[in-house]
């Protein structure tokens, strides 16, 4: 009779204790009373493009080894990452929506915005290209043709940096996505999921080059048949900025660690790492910090004209 209940409790406790051993290390690190986060942990709110492409996994171990600071990466959309910073839930944000970033600093949530790197957006679609946009030089013209033919288009629809860019292009084309019909699919998901959707639906979408290439070239991934149809238009330029969260607004943030991280990320060593980060023979991000430009004065001028990371040195 009572054996049953006892047995159940025993199983629960045993399993709980067993798993507690595995989880104990991260529990002990969490502070209980102090308002400040520990100095050796840093919460980095960033976009799915920097994380899903594998860049952060590639560069962060170097920073962690040098500084003794563990970086906890929370990969969300740019909108959510900035909101995390504005709530003081992150110590530093690494995002890609310049106007929003400047607004974030202007509102006092961040101390300063620093250039980190860039790549570019590309318009991808099925090889059959129903709207006939392949090879167009103007992204706005391409978007105009897609809207005209009402060929399916998958939008991120999640207030991410890519989504913000996409809306800017529609606007430049004199169109309003809110008035579009069923062919315009607002997915509300991350870049990887949207690429998969567009692939399944034979639809167009706007993607950052890094995530597209990482997905396209990754042998473990589900094969993408989507191809780059439009690239190289200056409107497709995609700069990334890093901003420490303002400790005056949020006294609990790890401001010292955040500044250390920003100094390291914009410093030459990290910039070299970013330049050397390749996946399947392709460079995904081009370094763009002040320190980098100082060390490589000739690369800077050329890069701002043609944001094409695949051809960068």
């Amino acid at each position: 009779m009572r054996k049953t209940c006892f047995g159940l409790l025993l199983v629960l406790t045993l399993l709980g204790a067993l798993s507690a051993c595995g989880g104990a290390s991260e529990e002990s690190a969490a502070p209980t009373s102090s308002a400040a986060r520990p100095a050796d942990r840093l919460i980095l709110a960033t976009t799915t493009s920097t994380y899903d492409s594998g860049l952060l996994d590639y560069i962060l171990p170097t920073f962690e080894a040098q500084s003794g600071i563990t970086v906890d990466v929370v990969a969300v959309g740019t909108g959510q990452a900035l909101a995390m910073g504005a709530n003081g839930d992150a110590d530093v944000v690494l995002v890609h929506a310049r106007a929003r970033e400047e607004q974030f600093v202007a509102e006092g949530h961040g101390t300063q915005r620093y250039d980190v790197m860039y790549n570019d957006f590309v318009i991808v679609g099925a090889p059959s290209d129903p709207a006939g946009i392949q090879g167009l030089e103007s992204a706005t013209e391409a978007f105009g043709r897609i809207a005209e033919t009402e060929a399916p288009f998958v939008s991120r629809g999640d207030d991410s940096g890519t989504h913000i860019k996409e809306r800017a292009i529609w606007e430049a084309a004199g169109l309003n996505p809110d008035e579009f019909g069923d062919w315009y699919i607002a997915a509300g998901q991350g870049m990887g999921a949207v690429l998969t959707m567009a692939n399944e639906l034979g639809a167009y979408t706007l993607s950052d080059r890094a995530t597209y290439l990482a997905r396209r070239a990754d042998a473990q991934s589900e094969a993408l048949t989507l191809e780059i149809l439009v690239e190289g238009d200056p409107i497709l330029f995609n700069p990334y900025g890093v901003i420490p969260v303002n400790p005056q607004k949020h006294p609990g943030v790890n401001a010292e660690g955040a500044q250390k991280f920003v100094d390291w990320l914009t410093g030459l060593e990290a910039q070299e790492l970013i330049a050397g980060f390749q996946r399947y023979g392709q460079t995904l991000f081009v370094p763009d910090s002040a320190a980098w430009h100082e060390a490589h004065p000739e690369g800077a001028a050329e890069a701002s004209d043609a944001p094409n990371p695949t051809q960068a040195p």
Binding site: G22, G23, E26
Partner: peptide, 9 residues
């Protein structure tokens, strides 16, 4: 283990 830990606690 972490899944089990969170869920069982």
């Amino acid at each position: 283990l972490r899944s089990l830990h969170v869920t069982l606690v």
